[in-house]
Amino acid sequence: MLIAATVALLIAMALTLFRAVAGPSLFDRVLSANSFGTKIVLLIGLLGFLTERPEFLDIALLYALVNFVGTIAILKFFRYRNLGLSSDEIANREDN
């Protein structure tokens, strides 16, 4: 059962990577980079159970958090073309 899940996950990772390389639009690439991170998180969780050390689940949780930071940065970059804006400046731009 775990083996089937791992194989399916590896295939899904290959497909996601293909979309990141080929993806015609930028949003394809953002989405694939994000879901690639999610799949790594799942893979680490599965690896923990495959090698009978489920405590790897903690690492998977941390990866989920780190992955979130990257996605937020990418989305902020898309919206404002700049990462150094403070919340005041963002409010200013929203007003304009």
Partner: peptide, 20 residues
């Protein structure tokens, strides 16, 4: 931009390898 997205995927992959 695609390169940045791919380097993120690259380091996640190597992190997965380091876990194994």
């Amino acid at each position: 931009f695609a390169v940045v997205a791919l380097t993120g995927a690259f380091s996640l992959l190597s992190a997965g390898l380091l876990v194994t």
